[in-house]
């Protein structure tokens, strides 16, 4: 670079360069987005608490039954014929059901199912929404019209109904089918929002610059458009987890989702509702865990959104 005789050049770069004329050390340290985002996330106390709760849920759901069995000897399928409808006790931490099943073991097993279903559905539906919405917005024309017509169609189809009718038929294939069924009907609104954002983003100059550089359409969509919508997608994914868990529990509540003898929070809550007033432990633990999980997920999503948005002042930026 020519000697920094021009004071304006130095002034401009004063904030950035300490030694404008010197050669910088040869290693360029690329720290990357991830660590910056994580740092911002860690500063939110509420989010860390929620994260802790969620981790607890996972650990409890997957390791809990193992530990519990080691301590008390009960699993979700065994019955204690000496203890029907017992309130919580050291022997049965969450009490027992009418036929002597251990509520803790059952609840943890149900939690497992609900957690996995929720996560999978959120991933699939958000991914689908991002790709479909971005393609519709970026390509425009008949691609856009066709995709949006499909979206409208799926929005109008009574999803609850269709899943309720279809899923018992696939019972033998397991709960993975349920995941797909729920996911198919969950992505549409996000897709529309993604499309709207793509329409405004694609005229921005950095997209033009990328197009000019020769970046392929796929490259533009995945590297320039979708990352600039990441905050939207993250919030949406987390709300999707919550909605998916609720959808699954709703379906199972009516008997359409996860069927007995398989356990999910939904059918546990359903069987507990009947006796909710007299034997509250049958209902409250499952319901409480459900609310705690979805609440934790929502708070995390909110914090992630702030951490991902470089302009957000709430995130506590690196400045």
């Amino acid at each position: 670079m020519s000697a920094p005789a021009d004071p304006l050049v130095v002034a401009d770069d004063a904030a950035v360069s300490d030694h404008p004329g010197q050669k910088a050390p040869s290693a360029v340290v690329v720290r990357g987005r991830r660590s910056l985002v994580l740092r911002r996330f860690r500063r939110r106390r509420g989010a860390m608490v929620a994260l802790g709760v969620l981790v607890l849920m996972f650990v409890g759901a997957f390791l809990g039954p193992v530990i519990y069995q080691a301590i008390t000897g009960w699993t979700y399928s065994t019955q204690d014929y000496t203890a029907f409808l017992q309130p919580p006790s050291p022997d049965h931490w969450f009490g027992t059901t009418q036929i002597g099943q251990d509520v803790f073991a059952q609840t943890m097993r149900g939690l497992q199912k609900s957690l996995i279903i929720g996560l999978l559905v959120a991933l699939i539906s958000t991914g689908l929404a991002a790709v479909v919405g971005a393609c519709a917005g970026y390509f425009g024309g008949w691609v856009d019209r066709a995709l949006m017509w499909g979206v409208d169609l799926l929005l109008v189809i009574p999803s609850f109904l269709v899943v309720a009718i279809i899923s018992p038929a696939f019972q033998s294939a397991g709960w993975l089918v349920l995941v797909f069924l729920i996911a198919i009907f969950a992505w549409m609104i996000t897709a529309r929002i993604v499309r709207g954002m793509t329409l405004s983003l694609k005229e921005r100059e950095f997209v033009l610059a990328a197009r000019y550089s020769g970046v392929s359409s796929a490259g533009i969509i995945f590297r320039h458009l979708i990352p600039n919508m990441s905050s939207l997608l993250i919030i949406d994914a987390t709300i999707a987890v919550a909605t998916a868990i609720i959808a699954e529990t709703g379906l199972s509540y009516f008997g359409f989702g996860v069927q007995p003898p398989d356990v999910s929070l939904g059918n546990l809550i359903a069987s507990g509702t009947r006796s909710a007033f007299t034997f509250p432990w049958l209902f409250l633990f499952a319901g409480g865990l459900l609310v705690a999980t979805t609440l934790a997920v929502s708070v995390i999503g909110d914090a992630l959104r702030d951490a991902l948005d470089p302009a957000s002042s709430r995130a506590g930026g690196t400045k």
Partner: peptide
């Protein structure tokens, strides 16, 4: 809002019943 977005209708309904009692 966080609480009620996280809570399914059937849970709310039963809680309300408790409250009503």
């Amino acid at each position: 809002s966080f609480f009620f977005i996280a809570t399914p209708v059937f849970f709310t309904a039963v809680l309300l019943k408790f409250g009503a009692l």
